[in-house]
Amino acid sequence: MEYIALGTGMLVILAGLWAIMTRKNLIRIIIGFSLFDTGIHLVLVAISYVKGGTAPILDSTVCIQDAAQRIVDPVPQALVLTAIVIGLGVTALMLAFAMKMHKEKGTLDIRSFKDLKW
C-alpha cells in the first residue's frame, strides 16, 4: 500500500514540475505548484506508514496499552498538516500576484511578461 502511495506521490511531483515548466498560463503554473505540494504530502505520509498500522487515534478498538504496536507514526502527519496550511498560504499569495499581473497587462500568458527577462 505504501509503495502505491509513494510512487503516486513521486509521479504527482513530476507532473507538477512538468506543469510549472511547460504551461504558459499563470493559473496553470500555480496549479502545477499545488500539484508539486500535494505530491510531497503524499510522499511524506507514505514514508510514515507502518505495516498493518492504523490511524493514530485511540478509541475502543485501539486502546492505550497496545497503541505503540498498532498505530502509524503521528509526527509526519502533523508535519503534513503544517505543510498543507503553508501550501495554501503560498497558493493564495501566488493567485494574488496573478491577479495583479493580469491587471497590469490584461493577459495571463507568461510570455507577455518580459520585464525581468534577460
Binding site: Y3, S48, V50, K51, I64, Q65, Q69, P74, V75
Partner: peptide, 15 residues
C-alpha cells in the same frame, strides 16, 4: 516500509 514505529513516534505512543 516500516515494521515498527520510529523512536520519536514510539515515544509519543507510550501509555
Amino acid at each position: 516500509g516500516n515494521d515498527k514505529l520510529p523512536e520519536l513516534g514510539n515515544y509519543y505512543a507510550q501509555p
